[in-house]
Amino acid sequence: MHTLLSRVNNASAFMSSCMMTLLAAIAISSFFLGSQPTGEVGISPVKVFAAKGRRHYSGKQDAAFVNFNVTADLAPLFHWNTKQLFVSLEAEYTNMHGVQNTVVIWDKIIRRKQDAQLHIEGGKNKYAFREVSTSFKDVSPASYALKYNLMPYVGVLQYGEIARTSDDVPFPEAQAKVAS
């Protein structure tokens, strides 16, 4: 009955169930910790150029260039179960064919509470911002939103929105690249 093997078995089973309970408690606690962060997004007038297309398509495809200002205080999202924050600036618009587009133009990973204050002025889009139908002509003005994804040490991933532009930003007429 009380062999070494059964003792080891019992002890390790008890330890692993304690561990699981603790992990579950931590995972559940993160639903109650943390509060809504505050921030602001400002977009300067967007520029559109006729550029080289995406792969497989050799023709021209419009590329938009966005300058933005972002201020945000993300410290409220940091608690004991916050491993990192993934913050992204996204453009949302509908094109002339009725296709709804959401495109991430900039992102940042924040790992420490000390770095949770964002002050970005004159930021540029990090990823190419192209329209699937190749042209931004007759496309509805875009709304820009700053969003976060909280990634925990253990538990459920949480998503949310920090700020959004109050007015939609229109796309201008495409200009040919000026040789400088």
Binding site: Y57, Q61, H97, V99, N101, T102, V103, Y127, S133, S135
Partner: peptide, 27 residues
Amino acid sequence: HRVIETHDMPLCAPESFAFTKPTRRQP
């Protein structure tokens, strides 16, 4: 990997709606 772009087609959009080629006309 993480999704960085989504393009939601209208319901029942035909195959040519994939926009690998430019379409100025409404399909």
